[in-house]
Design a protein around this nucleic acid. Sequence first.
DNA 1: CAACAGAATGTAAACGTTTACATCAGGCGG
DNA 2: CCGCCTGATGTAAACGTTTACATTCTGTTG
Lengths: 336, 336
Amino acid sequence: MATVSRVLNGKGPVRDITSRRVQAAADRLRYVPHGGARSLITRRTNAIGVLLPDLFGEFFSEAIRGIDHAARGAGYQLLVSGSHGNRAQAETALRAMRGRVDGLVVMSPNIDGPTLSANLPEGWPVMLLNCAVDGAAFDSINIDNEGGAAAMVEHLAGLGHRRIAHVTGPPDNWDARERLRGYRRAVLSSGGEYTRELEVPGDFTEESGYQAARFVLGMEPTPTAIFTANDSMAIGLLAAFQEMGVRVPGDVAVGGFDDIPIARFMTPPLSSVSVSIADLGARAMGRLLAALKEGSRHVPRHETLPARLVVRSSSGSRSPKPPKSSRHSRTRRKDS
Amino acid sequence: MATVSRVLNGKGPVRDITSRRVQAAADRLRYVPHGGARSLITRRTNAIGVLLPDLFGEFFSEAIRGIDHAARGAGYQLLVSGSHGNRAQAETALRAMRGRVDGLVVMSPNIDGPTLSANLPEGWPVMLLNCAVDGAAFDSINIDNEGGAAAMVEHLAGLGHRRIAHVTGPPDNWDARERLRGYRRAVLSSGGEYTRELEVPGDFTEESGYQAARFVLGMEPTPTAIFTANDSMAIGLLAAFQEMGVRVPGDVAVGGFDDIPIARFMTPPLSSVSVSIADLGARAMGRLLAALKEGSRHVPRHETLPARLVVRSSSGSRSPKPPKSSRHSRTRRKDS
DNA sequence: CAACAGAATGTAAACGTTTACATCAGGCGG
DNA sequence: CCGCCTGATGTAAACGTTTACATTCTGTTG
């Protein structure tokens, strides 16, 4: 019995012949070690819980991809729970994971610090991704939403735009709020025009971008540039403009956020702000695993991942007319 | 001890006052039941393993969404493993899940029946999604890739096209191969032109669609319609055509597959074949849970989910074009 | 060949639940 | 007041591993 355990875990001294006999018997019997019993005695589950919000588009995939890759490399498995629209759902999922995982990666813009503390055993390894949680109690990684948004607006301002509209994301979304803050800051600092009217409400869907386009064109005077809080809305916007015969960037410059893979295949190719979600996930998992190793001597840390401005033709950087000949960048990850 | 168990599981007779005292103590101590110990004695893990391949675009998100939703409703958790590019990886993941889950949803176009059987305990509940596994040994759900592809080609043929190119997916991808078969069948049955040359290799990425566009335009005579094995490639195609001044559907009609959300926001809006991935996932999980209940009296079943043709303007649905058109047609249509 | 060292293997306790069964506390009819 | 019934609670075995420790085997050396 002990020898079987040693063979299957590859530790302890076992004669080669014995090892082979055990292996053969295990194969023949289709023996599978019981994970529960194992984690009962070893006090580790070798699983990490992953809490994701109701993500659309490629975000979910990318986040999981990064997390999964890092976890697999370290021999951990992923207990995933997605689609948490509100706090109550996230709370339920959180409770369900207790006692089944060694640590947690939480990406939930709807959850707050107290809720987390209340639902987690003391001193549990948790890594917060893009959560609106402050304080030193938890580890966290955030995307520099504000900085990225500001960079885009400054880019537009640098091209001479003074009246720049912003299509916002859902008001209860943390990323969206940060991006809005970046927009405001950059508009003010660059001497652009700032009124509340220029902040057009959206909800991250293509459809809301489509609607926003019509709304913006109705404004007087018409803004000369539009920064949308994500790429999906920018796509809706471009579709609407195309229909209405508005030229981009000739009549209106457009910039988005996220740099989703198809951004560069839009007509015109969409300027955006690139955030590597897969990296974010991988990094989060990496830090969580490190925290797991450190145990109780681990001290929480905050980290902000930079966002990179990606200039393409929709913002009109290259020429005032829609450039037909501008080349696409050749870099494209195969696995997205 | 037994009473605590009864309270926490809400079964067995317990006095109200006792129940409250137990709850209070549990809260105070932040007591969390040990999942391993629990599954050790109950012989169930309340977890379902999910094996996903290296999915492109929004597929991953959607599949998980559907599966997750159905699983959560039944009180199950998801042990997810993604990004399996080849059989070996899938095999490793499969082994790692044994003994930790009650059942398995496998969506892996790279795995085959024997491999599965070899890596799984006998009679384990498994649901195959879009796998190239035949035989009565396993439950399975497939998308009607072939039928959907044929529908698109027939639609194009119905508009008068006789020379229809097909940009294929990766040759080792099952979906891609099925779609190719649908293309061939429909081309032949509709009396279109069929040569091997019309099958242009792609790999499901936007980039490969972009490349394919250039390749197709170099053919002599130029095909009048192109059916791509997925939407991403169609998007790359459209971008290339836009750059080159080729009008769609004026010069070339285009149809894709998957009906991803942005398809209708392309210029022109992309005709496609719609498959509800979330439904596919939910349905798979539903059937797996049912199989779990039935236990050993369960009999495997195969199911095929229909794919729905979605006609938009990229295929030129409004007016059939003359069969012998060259690169420059006179008709210019406004997109709907 | 005896003694010994070190490697290999065996033994048993422990992990934290669930559950069949035993026990206990009251209420009720006789 | 006794036996009995029922509902509530306690007891202990069982689940399948890992691992410290005990035991046995194997080969080497004096």
